[in-house]
Amino acid sequence: MSVTTLPPLALAHRQPSWLVRLFDYKPFLIAMCLAPAIGLLAVFLTYPLGLGIWLAFTDTTIGRKGVFVGLENFQYLLTDPLWWNAVFYSVVYTGIATFGKFALGFWLALLLNNHFPFKSLLRAIILLPWIVPTVLSALAFWWIYDPQFSIISYLLVDVLHWRSSNVDFLGSPWPARFSLIAANIWRGIPFVAISLLAGLQTISPSLYEAAMLDGASAWQRFRYITFPMMMPILAIVMTFSIIFTFTDFQLVYAITRGGPGNSTHLLATLAFQRGIAGGELGEGAAIAVSMIPFLVFATLFSYFGLARRKWQQGESND
């Protein structure tokens, strides 16, 4: 490698201009390398984050600079049944969808960890729901949940004769809530399964061999080898999954827009409705900021809850 690159390098070395020397000066080079990334993140991430927290304490609306109003926005939210409703549904949505995604995703990962023909093709196909833009697959679900022409209703009513009337997926609160959760689980399974499959493949086969020699049953091998070894990766994937499920926006906005009767609003869609569509930037920002404590709590819980158990397992195993 060094031999092939030597001639041009030597050439550059013979005639070092001040520019070349400046770029070889390490502190300057470090600053130049970090500048684009840090600059972008500072202007479009850190600054807006701070600005958002500031906006939450003002009564800014679109086109009018607000004044500081202290905790007024938050006091208003605490008395707002719609906000409580959104908090409730966000927690339910995150809880059930995360459980579903991980149960089914782990199962799919275990299935994919077998040897069978066309394995890589299958793995590629399974990731599709995660690749395709969420809004576009959400539209497909909207059509699948259509009150009149739902294909699921057709199957249940006309093919299987289990029901006599069409299923009203999106027309009343609880069915709509569960329909959205089902769509979210559908979209989340591939990511969980492929990530966990990567974790499964790093577990050394010798552990299973040793356990089989000791007479461990299949369940014991899963419970005492697979599960503890998967803990670290589970913790990371679950942290991500919880954060992005709790702050989900696209699915709900595309399928129900918070309806029927505001029953399926998540905090993010409520923030959009009040902040951008309604123009109350201050109040919208307050709703968005009210997600932060939940996120911090969920992150700490999933990360430390799972990671600590991993350390305990590690200690007892070593």
Binding site: L34, I243, L267, A288, M291
Partner: peptide, 24 residues
């Protein structure tokens, strides 16, 4: 620490940022 800071930026979801970003 710079690496950790950039990693933490990934954990900030767009749903929290879109309102202030709109004003920016």
């Amino acid at each position: 620490y710079v690496g950790l800071g950039i990693y933490l930026a990934y954990l900030v979801p767009p749903s929290i940022l879109f309102i202030p970003l709109a004003t920016v």
